[in-house]
Nucleic acid binder design. Sequence first.
DNA 1: GTAGGAGGCACATCCTTATAA
DNA 2: CTTATAAGGATGTGCCTCCTA
Lengths: 339, 339
Amino acid sequence: MRDVAALADVSIKTVSRVINKEKYISETISRRVNEAIQRLNYRHNLAASQLRAGVNSSAVGVILVDISNPFSAAVHRAVEDVFRETGIAVFLASTDEEADREKAAVHAFSKRRVDGFVIMPASHDQGYLLSEIAAGTHVVIIDRPPAYLNVDFVVSENRKGARLGVDHLIRHGHRRIGFIGDWPTVASSQLRLAGYEDALAAAEIERDPRIILQGFADAAAVQQATENLLAADAGITALFVAQNALCAPAMRAVFARGKRKEIAIVGFDGFDGADLIEPGLTVIAQDPTLIGRTAGELLLRRMNGENPEPTGQMLDTHLIVRGSGEIPGPFRVKDASLA
Amino acid sequence: MRDVAALADVSIKTVSRVINKEKYISETISRRVNEAIQRLNYRHNLAASQLRAGVNSSAVGVILVDISNPFSAAVHRAVEDVFRETGIAVFLASTDEEADREKAAVHAFSKRRVDGFVIMPASHDQGYLLSEIAAGTHVVIIDRPPAYLNVDFVVSENRKGARLGVDHLIRHGHRRIGFIGDWPTVASSQLRLAGYEDALAAAEIERDPRIILQGFADAAAVQQATENLLAADAGITALFVAQNALCAPAMRAVFARGKRKEIAIVGFDGFDGADLIEPGLTVIAQDPTLIGRTAGELLLRRMNGENPEPTGQMLDTHLIVRGSGEIPGPFRVKDASLA
DNA sequence: GTAGGAGGCACATCCTTATAA
DNA sequence: CTTATAAGGATGTGCCTCCTA
């Protein structure tokens, strides 16, 4: 900046004025300064600028479980879109459900003075964020309800959604419905299991822990576990698959046993192309783009100085009927109005 | 930091020493300082530290076409994994194939003094990066060969891969093979089209521009265009779909016409669950994780001071046979060894 | 309306001092 | 008189705030 000032033969302060497009600079000087900037290949140092101005980095940190999961990716994309036009940059980190990595990412971004966080928590307790919040950093929690923290959050109706899906299977004559879910420590997974149990209770079906499978290291483990469940002759006629990434491997297991048209399946948030399968995968659909956009807007609002009471948004899910969830089960159902 | 020093009753410099874990600090003082840090909820300001030290931000910028595309997401995840342990943070931006947004993202990250970029270029000419490189910022280009820029790059064998896929269709008796591709301005798309043409030329099949479809606004447009192509009675018996996101909509069009078992399809890099479809989608597979990891490692190497000649890595693709590409065409083939 | 200058943001570098072996 | 350990102080990093003309 000093060099630019020297070349343009003005003071440093004037260069600063030109860069920040302040008022009261003549056209002539502005042009001269800009030419010097070009010639010297000068680049404004935002960090120094913000240090002096006493403001934060105009950046936000997004912390997700795994950006390579399409749900996370869609959420991120929506958050990014909210911030693009504002000149706010977005940091990204994945945690793989490890609370320590979540904390490490928060710390790394905090050192870089981000203005806010959008977090899909892997941690069981987000109380550690209180000090960040006290320091003026804003936080929005997504996908899973926050624990020990009163901040804005945006989640899907996990429990209601799961209940909806399992109800659907029950209405189609199923009573032995396997549950395939994420790690039981994951808050959203707990809620989906609760929704599953709600549906069973409402239909007076006994909950059988042997057909509730949770927590898998990878897709192969999901497939293996599903195969074992089907092979166990536990009388399973339907599966409720409580997370998107589990759907494909679970279906592989079903198909591998030749039960494509016998075992009914409902997934919580399937995958692109799930409609092409025969039968198409019936799912409880979420709206990751809306989650991301809402979270981004809530965060941006606070970054702009608004400070309302924290709000928790529960976004509706809905059933998409494609065939796999409508395979009839062995039990007669009185209700003729099957979806 | 001043407050911490005051509370711990040491000099600012000593606090700095503790934070940076320099040698020659006594246990006692170190503990006292750390307590003060805790008590004051102090957070080290990386920006100020790096300003004074004259180093960059220990952050990198990743610029992709669209993070919500699974290919991009997998690449990003691999890049992130390379940098996680090094304490280097990752910025992310999507361009939606708009060169201006690519430049805006580069500029935004450059102002934040990133040490390097990983870029999946939307631009037709990356010459604008020369000034960044001159300023000491490192660049690795991925997915598409760089234009007007001599830097490290990591791409798939787009042309060879496409040729492989179309050869496969030809060997199964097809000669009227529709091409469904990305915008023709996209470098990788051009190469895939070239590969398609290579295969046609080798088999002495005339290239018909009417069955080469490129550039779609969204999935619905792809599906509509494919339906029109099939309805046009152009004699199409096979499709080569040159990009992952185009596969599902193209298949929807084929299935909607009831040609599931008649029109052969090979995709360039399909999607998760493509094996569950009947018939499974035969694809030319890339390795996005390897692309991302390689790019991250190349960048990290330069950030660590190594400065070898730029290398261009062309990663092999391979054919995954699943059924859709093996639907026989109307032409007899002598080669008995069909894959 | 237009420009410049002193000073400081939060930190690290370089130099210096002090004690002990 | 070196060498290792432990701590402090002046100065400067790029830029903006506040004051001045």
